[in-house]
Simulated assay, not measured.
Amino acid sequence: MTYDPTGHLLLTPVDHEAPARVRRLRELGLGEQPDPAFDEFAHRLAEVTGAPFSMVNFIDENRQFFAGLHTPAGSHSGTDLGANAGGVGRFMARDHGYCPHVVVRRKALVLEDVCDYPRFAGNPVVDEIGIRSYMGAPLIDRTGVALGTICVVDTDVRPWGRAGLETIKAMAAELVEQIHRREDGMF
Rank of each mutant, 00 (worst) to 15 (best):
M1C: 10
M1E: 12
M1T: 13
M1R: 12
M1D: 11
T2S: 12
D4H: 09
D4M: 06
P5Q: 11
P5F: 11
T6Q: 14
T12G: 06
T12Q: 15
P13Q: 01
D15K: 06
D15V: 08
D15F: 07
A20T: 12
V22Y: 09
V22A: 14
R24E: 15
R24Q: 12
R26G: 10
R26D: 14
G29Y: 04
G31T: 01
G31E: 01
G31R: 02
E32P: 05
P34H: 06
P34E: 11
A37K: 12
F38R: 05
D39H: 11
E40Y: 08
E40R: 15
E47N: 11
V48P: 04
T49Q: 08
T49W: 05
G50V: 01
F53A: 09
N57E: 04
F58L: 15
I59A: 07
I59M: 09
E61M: 11
E61H: 13
R63Q: 14
Q64W: 02
Q64K: 05
F66I: 04
A67F: 03
G68R: 02
L69H: 05
H70P: 04
H70Y: 14
H70G: 05
T71F: 05
T71E: 06
P72G: 09
G78W: 03
D80C: 03
D80V: 01
D80F: 00
N84M: 12
G87H: 01
G87I: 00
V88A: 11
G89Y: 01
R90M: 05
R94L: 13
D95I: 00
D95C: 07
Y98K: 06
C99Q: 02
C99N: 03
V102Y: 04
V103S: 07
R105H: 13
K107W: 03
L109D: 03
V110H: 03
L111F: 03
E112M: 07
D113R: 06
V114Y: 04
C115R: 15
C115Y: 08
Y117I: 06
G122W: 01
N123G: 09
N123Q: 12
P124M: 02
V125W: 01
E128N: 11
A137T: 02
A137K: 01
D141N: 09
G144K: 09
I150N: 05
I150P: 05
T155W: 00
T155M: 13
D156W: 06
A163D: 15
A163R: 14
G164T: 01
L165F: 10
I168T: 02
K169S: 12
A170P: 04
V176K: 05
E177K: 13
E177W: 07
E177D: 15
Q178A: 14
R182W: 08
D184E: 15
M186Y: 10
